[in-house]
């Protein structure tokens, strides 16, 4: 199925350079070039064979080691009962220079909120989005929380974020303390897996 979709994308949008990946475990996906996402989205939605009429979600994942951000468009067809993970890779950029990609709101209007969330959480600018604002955090929030190097700001509008007297640091070390003071294996009613059989015996 993935190979058929890849061939279809390549025949319709030759510049997309679609590559299918089928790993041993889990779901396979198709990677396309970021510049051609809008054409690919249009082609997939209007194809009579696949008819990807629903955009389920847009996920962003941060890979600091490769200095890349990966966007996954999860598409589905409710008429043909298909599902597709479509991926693009973008350079990571920095705070003042966020990566850019074309918006697909003109193809599926569901993309409106999804792209706003992706912008808010992972920091990708969607060119041509009709209402490009943050959605879950306040408009003047600093940073993009789901980036791996995100550090929460210390003061927001004169309010201290995570004030020390409200953070219960004792609980952070609860597990450690438990190990020091008692044997966790002896806790009654704790969950047992079959692997424990040898320990018990």
């Amino acid at each position: 199925m993935l190979n058929q979709i890849t061939d279809y994308i390549n025949s319709k949008v030759p510049s997309a350079n679609a590559v299918a990946t089928t790993p041993e475990k889990g779901d396979g996906f198709v990677t396309v070039k970021a510049e051609s996402i809008l054409e690919v989205a249009n082609a997939l939605k209007n194809s009579s064979e696949f008819e990807m009429n629903v955009l389920q979600v847009i996920t962003g994942t941060d890979y600091p080691a490769a200095s890349e951000i990966e966007l996954t468009y999860v598409l589905a067809s409710f008429t043909k009962n298909l599902e597709l993970l479509l991926k693009v890779r973008l350079p990571r950029g920095d705070k003042n220079n966020l990566p850019k990609i074309n918006s697909v709101v003109s193809v599926w209007r569901a993309a409106n909120y999804q792209e706003r969330e992706a912008f808010d959480m992972i920091g990708v600018t969607f060119v041509g989005h009709p209402d490009h604002r943050r959605i879950l955090t306040p408009d003047d929030w600093d940073g993009h929380p789901l980036r791996k190097d995100y550090v929460v700001q210390e003061v927001y509008r004169g309010m201290v974020v995570n004030p020390a007297h409200k953070v219960n640091t004792e609980d952070h070390f609860f597990g450690k303390k438990l190990k020091e003071t008692m044997d966790p294996k002896k806790v009654v009613n704790s969950w047992k897996s079959d692997d424990d059989a040898s320990v018990e015996a």
């Binding site: 790993p23 041993e24 475990k25 889990g26 779901d27 996906f29 389920q56 979600v57 996920t59 996954t72 999860v74 599902e83 993970l85 897996s193 692997d195 424990d196």
Partner: peptide, 24 residues
């Protein structure tokens, strides 16, 4: 006892009372 999920990815959809819930 210690769960280590093999490297890879998955998208799983289930039908919740309010609609399709997907975990990626």
């Amino acid at each position: 006892k210690i769960i280590k999920v093999p490297a890879g990815e998955i998208y799983m959809r289930t039908e919740c009372p309010r609609g399709e819930l997907g975990y990626h």
